[in-house]
Design a protein around this nucleic acid. Structure first.
Lengths: 104, 104
DNA sequence: ACTATATTCAACCTAACGGTTGAGTATTGA
DNA sequence: TCAATACTCAACCGTTAGGTTGAATATAGT
């Protein structure tokens, strides 16, 4: 499993994408992440581990609490790969292009 | 399974990404796609089906030959989702931003 | 010291994935 | 008409993924 495999696979699960959405609004503990889900804490713990293995989430321990933070590095490869085939999904990248123009 | 799940999952396999790479250089038959791989035709046929289910590949039959073509539509959702969290992997999107600026 | 909290680990289950082989079905070309 | 070609379908197999439960571990608060 290379980095790209891990990143795409991590993003393929809706629960994990929701976890990312939550972490985008700030770091959180495993319990905080689990709260909105109708699923065991253990299940979420596993999902976090998948995101961590993909490098999308970093963990720092504070006593008994594990604080998770979103980390963008693996996305470089994802976006690089996507941009390689830009002309095949070019219309789709326009929105992102506009967005980037406005922020650069 | 929603569209985003299917798209990300389809992209998570290196064989399928290679198939996409090949199709980016032109439409091809199943046999053509299978040629470079040390893998049965059936395995490739399955991979193609996964890409098809994700909408990334379209198939048109010409007699006994099935011609596959790359199709970008599902990427709209992928890129939209990615761009929503742009500030977390912002550095990474720069390259794509530059690329888009030069082509728009 | 004791209890509650935060988390992981381990074992288990079922379903899906990625591959195989063997057979079946059209279509093509001789 | 017949054989080769291009493919799919179906069954199987081993591994992984996503979930569960139950127990272990470590830290925090009283």
């Amino acid at each position: 499993m290379n980095a790209l495999d891990n990143a795409f696979a991590a993003l393929a699960d809706p629960t994990r994408r929701k976890i990312i959405a939550k972490l985008a609004r700030g770091s959180a503990r495993v319990t905080d992440l689990a709260a909105p889900f109708d699923m065991s804490l253990n299940a979420i713990s596993k999902h976090v581990k998948v995101l961590e293995r993909a490098g999308l989430v970093h963990r720092r321990r504070h006593g008994r609490e594990h604080v998770l933070t979103l980390h963008g590095a693996p996305m470089r490869d994802v976006v690089t790969w996507l941009s390689r085939y830009e002309r095949f999904w070019n219309i789709k990248l326009d929105a992102l292009g506009e967005f980037l123009k406005s922020t650069n």
